[in-house]
Design a protein around this nucleic acid. Sequence first.
DNA 1: TGTACATCAGTGAACGCGCGTTCACTGATGTAC
DNA 2: TGTACATCAGTGAACGCGCGTTCACTGATGTAC
Lengths: 226, 226
Amino acid sequence: MTTRPVPAVSTGSEDDGPSAEPEPSPRRSRNRRGEGTRLREEILTAAEELLLTTGDSDAVSMRLVAEAVGVTPPAIYQHFPDKTTLIWEVSARYFAALDHSIDKAVVGVSDPIEELEVRGRAYVDFGRDNPEPYRVMFMMHPHAPADRFNEWVLQSRIFREATANLQVCIDTGLFLPEYTDAFLVSLAYWARIHGLTSLMISKPALPWSDQFIDQYIHSCIHGIAR
Amino acid sequence: MTTRPVPAVSTGSEDDGPSAEPEPSPRRSRNRRGEGTRLREEILTAAEELLLTTGDSDAVSMRLVAEAVGVTPPAIYQHFPDKTTLIWEVSARYFAALDHSIDKAVVGVSDPIEELEVRGRAYVDFGRDNPEPYRVMFMMHPHAPADRFNEWVLQSRIFREATANLQVCIDTGLFLPEYTDAFLVSLAYWARIHGLTSLMISKPALPWSDQFIDQYIHSCIHGIAR
DNA sequence: TGTACATCAGTGAACGCGCGTTCACTGATGTAC
DNA sequence: TGTACATCAGTGAACGCGCGTTCACTGATGTAC
């Protein structure tokens, strides 16, 4: 099938100025003594950029990452024990970013139903804005070595907070009486929101629109509300 | 409801027991003159089985397929021009199977709301019973060469029929007045059902249950019904 | 102050692997005369 | 009836590729005395 991962690496960045050629691999200058973490950051950024452009963690190879940074492949192994860990660390940044963007979206929202909608919308927007990380985070094969979802979900704020949000709705009698378990309602709500998000990513050619998204989220909640 | 469409020929019978030897590759006897299509079928079956066990079309290699059939890799090219076509033909069987199992499920159901629920349930069951093909069909990267979803959706019966089903609900005043476009309602319903199905596949460790699925589907429809 | 030395941030070459695909071929099977 | 020949279903070897990872090393940088 020859899954050539595309020439990759956005040639658009202007701060590396002269180069942007794929071949020559402009060798960077060596770091000073205590500054090994600088390369670590550069590796993460390069891997992230490759993940964004290819949208496939398989297409992010240690060799391409090294070339993008301007370093030889073994140099990566001073900072990451293996490729799985590298991919996971890139994804982990996005888990944090998802947490953050939902947190930010709900600031100042007091009505619990409205808060639910805002959470859903922020989640969908995150997926639309970061389709390739979203794919790694939520659409990977469960056996994939870089899928650390289960480790994440246990300590993530957004699931705990969404569940708390739903508990408030249940306690104040906003939902139909058959919806009593906040965790299960949360799981169902997440599945619905994920359905839209992942389908927008997998099938971008379908006629998605802002209005469609808003109505979708609205009726997800209407379906369980009194 | 096991919707496994093609027998998937379990060559792994009981006598090879705990360890399936990878090495020996029992060479099959050559086909007679007009029987080239027999090998074609065996290749498809072997590729299907590999897709089912690995759950990853990248992991289905021409070499592994050839070995499973007991043939050398070039022999495959007499029946399939390339790997992409082979993977697609395997998936195509499942698109047909999905059509078939939904058709079968709705036989005898006359109430349009109940029919919608039955469609949803049959779809979820199909995904649960065929997670790896489902992944290839609906969760692949849109740029993946084997993703022929767009070719399929245009000619698939199930989307046309689901949309017709929804049109009946709209025409007979079963839905809230803001839901008027059967195509958009169909898209939203599909997104919700897909959300559950794909999450069950990606995150099988979460506490999914039959009761949960039924309530999920029920409230998908309640959300838009009067 | 100079110098020996430890440390650190990498390099260069290689390992063995599996991949999709091509190419020239072979030998059994069927067919025409 | 026998025999020459076309066809067909494959084989065997090789192509060039990119992959993750290991290993012994090098040369600049900082530090202790």
